[in-house]
Amino acid sequence: MKESSKKGKIHLSDGIFRDNTVLSSLMVISPVIVCGDTLVNATAVVCIFSLITFVSVVIASFIPKRLPYCLRAILCAVISSLVYVPVRISAQEFYPEIIPRLGIYFPLLALNSVIILQTGAKFSKMKKSGMLVSLLSYIVGFDLVMIVTAFVRELLAYGTIDSRVVNADFLVSGMGTSFGGFIFLGLLCGLYRKIRKSVTHGEDSEGEENVSCD
């Protein structure tokens, strides 16, 4: 991830537009590709991701910085997997039908790279107030992409919006599959870069993106 702002100020829009969690850093893309085919799935993923990531990163930010990188990564993973336990129990109450559909992506949300990699590399180096704003912006950035992707893919693949049938003239059933997710996300990523470049007047040159390892 790039520095959020050249002047050192952190804005809520940074993780949403300047350095989007999914479209710029390609973090947490697998749930977007595989689970982001309906709004119902997306809502569950968004709630679970936001809750686990926020709580885990806040707790993990107290891990001493002097520890070696690998120990910090392990501790972050342990914290998020512990946070996952109550979230899993609650989610089974709130989303009893959706959780089985998410399959392995549900526990994988607890081991996402925002928690494992960015806590040590970025968040723990920031002041707490700045960290909270930055963290929220990255969470909202993911949430927005997930919702937009799910909305478009559900409409194109199944002709529904939030499981309500709409008068769609044609359907692209492939949009509901993982390859449809890859292609749609690629197009969205290209569009995002185009818009960002036109807004920033080319300040964000190509190749500035820093892919994390998700």
Binding site: F179, I183, G186, L187, C189, G190, R193, E206, G207
Partner: peptide, 23 residues
């Protein structure tokens, strides 16, 4: 490749096409 689609967007679309073939 158009500049906005160079690297990751193009790679995602490319993997999507391969994924379609695998499917």
């Amino acid at each position: 490749v158009p500049q906005s689609f160079r690297e990751f967007p193009a790679m995602l679309i490319y993997i999507g096409i391969i994924s379609m073939a695998v499917y």
